[in-house]
């Protein structure tokens, strides 16, 4: 079983999908000759040629708009937007067309495409390079939104997204791209979009996170277990929309307490939606208000101070202690 970082495992998934299905093509700015600014598409031009590995002009809205049209003709485009902050340029085509053609055409034209884009903070970048706006896309009917957390699930989840018959927003935690390596199986593992993964079972409290926030969450968990004797259950959400409500409800019904972690802004964020669902379906099991550790409702700060904005293990531990103390 080879060891890979996430950049390599995403490249592997693209390679596997392009090799298995000639309808899969990839497109975006700097993705062909240059292999992408994060090198996720490295080497694919040489293997699959410029008809399937397309360096597009610099216009995010048209990248998505034309990918929709290509999908309508039966291709499976995987469009890269260089940074998720630039996805706002494409809001028009995502909301008006990508999310709607299946329904608008009464099922005649499904849009089996993927929008891949790196999101999140922690790489010391200039403005517009550190946003986490997954909540926008979860709010748009017709889309699916998924976020892997590590090399192994990134490969499986991208495979699933490319083979999904509906449009998928695939957020890549760029802080994790080259952060660590882990074993990635020789054969792709089946993973179902819409399913969360319980990565540690425990009985005292449920921690829910996803993407880049899984690392501080797991770090906090280690301390909580080892130093504070708290038996933590940890859930990696993986799929933001649709959301695996049942797994969340089952866990919180068991532990009675819950803290949700995400780096996006708090107002109408993913944690707010999870809290609403737990309120609807696990209310009688709750022993404390569901807590959240999130980014603040401010623009992402300049990178000299970004570490203070992002949720960290200490903040998560504080939130867990506060939730455990509630009587």
């Amino acid at each position: 079983m080879p060891q890979m970082n996430m950049a390599e495992s995403l490249n592997l998934a693209l390679d596997e999908c392009m090799n298995a299905d000639e309808r899969v093509c990839i497109m975006g700015e700097d993705i062909a000759v240059n292999g992408g600014v994060f090198r996720i598409t490295k080497g694919l031009l040489e293997k699959y040629g410029e008809d399937r590995v397309i360096d597009t002009p610099l216009a995010e809205n048209a990248i998505i708009g034309t990918a929709v049209g290509m999908a309508i003709t039966g291709l499976k485009p995987v469009a890269e937007i260089q940074f998720s902050g630039f996805t706002m340029q494409a809001f028009d085509q995502i909301e008006q067309n990508m999310a709607r053609y299946r329904n608008r055409s009464r099922g005649r034209y499904p849009v089996p495409m993927v929008l891949r884009t790196p999101y999140g903070g922690g790489i010391r970048a200039v403005e517009h390079h550190s946003e986490s706006r997954e909540a926008y896309w979860a709010h748009t009917p017709g889309l699916k939104v998924v976020i892997p957390s590590g090399p192994r699930n990134a490969r499986s989840l991208l495979n699933a997204a490319i083979n999904d018959p509906d449009p998928v927003i695939f957020y890549e935690p760029k802080a994790v791209y080259r952060a660590y390596r882990e074993d990635v199986p020789d054969e792709p593992e089946a993973i179902e979009i819409g399913k969360a993964q319980v990565v540690r079972t425990g009985s005292d409290i449920t921690l829910i996170a996803y993407g880049a926030m899984m690392r501080p969450t797991l770090e906090a968990t280690e301390d909580l277990v080892d130093l504070h004797n708290v038996d933590v259950e940890v859930i990696d959400l993986l799929s933001i929309s649709p959301m695996d409500t049942q797994t969340l409800v089952d866990s919180v019904s068991k532990t009675g307490r819950c803290v949700i972690v995400h780096e996006g802004p708090r107002n109408c964020g993913i944690a707010a939606e999870i809290i609403a669902r737990l309120n609807e379906k696990a209310f009688e099991h709750l022993e404390a208000p569901v807590n959240r550790v999130t980014g603040y409702d401010i623009h992402f700060p300049h990178f000299q101070v970004e570490q203070h904005y992002l949720p960290d293990p200490d903040t998560i531990i504080q939130a867990v202690k506060q939730t455990l103390a509630y009587e």
Binding site: C25, D51, R52, N61, A62, G65, T66, A67, V68, G69, M70, A71, I72, T73, G74, L75, D92, Q93, Q96, N97, R100, Y101, R104
Partner: peptide, 22 residues
């Protein structure tokens, strides 16, 4: 048609790019 003004032109362009590849 997409009611949003001009929006259908991007889809049409993508359809043309797809047809060319096929």
């Amino acid at each position: 048609f997409s009611i949003v003004i001009g929006s259908q032109v991007a889809t049409a362009t993508g359809v043309a790019m797809g047809l060319k590849r096929q």
